[in-house]
Design a protein around this nucleic acid. Structure first.
Lengths: 135, 135
DNA sequence: CACATAAACGCAAATGAATTGCAATTCCAC
DNA sequence: GTGGAATTGCAATTCATTTGCGTTTATGTG
């Protein structure tokens, strides 16, 4: 069931390049990364920022990567594996994954009540609080 | 129960200035605004961008204003009145408010399962889909 | 395997949002 | 009214993000 990065890229009909493979690899860690963080992580690979931005745009469009908001004034990205959300510590920035997510009912309720919308394709849900160290 | 902007400002122990009152006024519309949008809306008032950013930072810290993510690569702000969320059309950008929100149970469940976090203070929840015109 | 083509890339420049330092101004409590 | 702290404007700066363009590279087709 494991999918390597080449397969992921090919599966979304992207070319398999060193750069894009490296970007996916960088995103395979536990924490969602911003573009500057990705660039720092791939310092050795002399990847241009424009390349990373263009790759991430393509990746998010096809759903390979998910873009999330950690309220840090710039976007963060993570591999779009299993659907999940995040707990973010407002003090130290620690991030914990949250895999509970039963918003299907909620989405249906919302769609029924909405006068203007016809469909919901995605949602973002992040929780902000304090981790045990920062309490 | 109506609160005017002076009262809101005083209530959060801010000084009541023309600038900050105008910012709150600008945010009183239906749509969450980005800083550039606020500046455009207050063009006549010759408010500096730095002033707006500083005010919004103070406002979000004290909870007077809420910062939300519409996946547009820059932050949007709205008055922190009744707790609600948003439906955002991925095609035309239309925004509809969602006032259904029973995430209290969800938050408790998440906190219980979490090993690292001690408290949840806030959450962001936005739905992305297509409005009826863009279907 | 060569080759054509579209995708991906690097580089440089431009844009645009957000931040910062500092001096001047303004609100507010006393 | 006066003093001090909060707020502001201005200018300069930082940082993320985008864009144009010419070059390189992956890939499928013959």
């Amino acid at each position: 069931m494991q999918m390597n990065y080449s397969e992921i890229l090919r599966g979304a009909s992207f070319k398999v390049t060193i750069g894009r493979t490296a970007i996916l690899q960088a995103l395979s860690g536990e924490k969602p990364l911003s573009v500057p963080e990705i660039l720092r992580k791939l310092r050795g690979k002399k990847l241009d920022a424009a390349t990373v931005y263009r790759a991430l745009e393509a990746f998010t469009e096809t759903g390979v990567v998910r873009r999330i908001d950690l309220q840090h004034s710039h976007a963060h990205y993570e591999l779009a594996g299993a659907h999940h959300h995040h707990l973010i510590c407002k003090s130290c920035g620690k991030i914990e994954d949250v895999d509970v997510c039963d918003t299907k009912d909620l989405e249906n309720t919302i769609l029924q009540r909405s006068k203007l919308f016809g469909s919901i394709a995605a949602h973002s849900l992040e929780f902000f609080g304090l981790c045990k160290k920062c309490v």
